[in-house]
């Protein structure tokens, strides 16, 4: 069943891709193939393979339970928040929180995850910023 849905989604993607390719505005510069020629070939391969996947599905994969899916979703939300807040809060604070969260969700105790978070954040800051000179996001506190 998973593969059938996957195939249908893939087919829709291929159609969307082909439509978008046909709508590429022509430029005054052009060559024999044009900007939409190759994308159309790609869309055809994408569509054909999706159809084959939908017609001949493999055994369904083992999907996680709803609880685990919620877990993954929470992790994604956490990462998005991290990306958005990184320039606001500064590298060290944002990273410590994010790493502590991940560590906690992977089964560390509260104290251990706080230590992992702070440790990896400060560790990365020291190695990458202070030693290698990588520019990291700077927060209001200067780190």
């Amino acid at each position: 069943m998973s593969d059938r849905i996957f195939g249908v989604v893939g087919l829709l993607l291929a159609i969307g891709f082909a439509v978008a390719a046909l709508n590429i505005e022509e430029s005054f510069l052009s060559d024999a193939v044009g900007p939409s020629g190759f994308p159309l070939i790609v869309a055809a391969v994408l569509g054909l393979s999706s159809i084959v996947i939908a017609i001949k599905p493999d055994a369904a994969p083992h999907w996680p339970s709803l609880g685990r899916l919620a877990e993954l979703l929470a992790a994604v939300v956490m990462m998005v928040l991290y990306a958005e807040l990184l320039p606001v809060a500064g590298f060290v604070i944002a990273t410590a929180v994010a790493a502590a969260y991940l560590s906690w969700r992977l089964g560390s105790g509260i104290l251990a995850s706080v230590l992992t978070g702070v440790g990896s954040s400060v560790g990365i800051y020291v190695i990458f910023h202070l030693i290698f000179g990588l520019s990291l996001a700077t927060g209001p506190l200067g780190f």
């Binding site: 590298f91 089964g107 978070g117």
Partner: peptide, 16 residues
């Protein structure tokens, strides 16, 4: 549980 957060954070740091 200690390794994976570090992997994630190093990935973010690298791309950023």
């Amino acid at each position: 549980r200690i390794l994976m957060p570090i992997v994630a954070m190093v990935s973010f740091v690298g791309i950023y």
